[in-house]
């Protein structure tokens, strides 16, 4: 099963819509609740990141009975230092993002903690592509 969602820059009122749709689909498929929580928390954090930091992007979801793979690809400033961005507490978030309850430098560490595979490709001035996988059978 393949699904795509568009992420619009600065569209905070719709942040979480893709994660919500993914959650509904996984519940209908009777996937384990803890597995669902892991992937939707990770996708939600990534969705907020893309809305907050990038100029828009697309979320690609591929799902089968063994795993869910989600790619969040944005056009944006990229991440100059991924290792630093993975550290808890490091953030470049705007006051607007902090008003929404995010921007404390926990997004990428939260994503890492919830997924079985994480791959971040980024190029400064071009954009970022985050690929995450949660296995259902492990």
């Amino acid at each position: 099963m393949h699904t795509e969602f568009v992420v619009v820059e600065g569209d905070f009122s719709n942040a979480g819509k893709a994660s919500s749709e993914i959650k509904k689909t996984l519940k209908q498929l009777n996937i384990d609740n803890q597995k669902i929580k892991k992937i939707v928390v990770a996708v939600y954090e990534a969705e907020v990141n893309a809305i907050a930091h990038a100029y828009g992007g697309t979320i690609y979801v591929d799902l089968d009975h063994e795993k869910i793979s989600v790619v969040i690809k944005d056009v944006g400033p990229g991440i100059p230092d991924v290792d630093m961005a993975m550290q808890k507490g490091f953030s470049t978030a705007s006051p607007k993002v902090r008003e929404m309850g995010f921007g404390a430098g926990m997004g990428l560490p939260n994503i890492k903690n919830n997924v079985d595979e994480l791959d971040i490709k980024t190029q400064v001035g071009v954009g970022t592509e985050i690929r995450m996988v949660v296995n259902f059978l492990s």
Binding site: F12, S13, A15, G16, S19, S20, V41, Y44, E45, V48, E99, M100, G101, F102, A104, M106, G107, N110, N113
Partner: peptide, 27 residues
């Protein structure tokens, strides 16, 4: 801070917050 809420593993939780926006519901 909603990212803190997203770290919780427990169920049967009541979220108590002074942040009142759509993202608290989504979180």
């Amino acid at each position: 801070l909603m990212s803190d809420v997203l770290t919780l593993e427990e169920e049967e939780v009541i979220l108590i917050t002074g942040l009142c926006n759509i993202q608290t519901i989504r979180t």
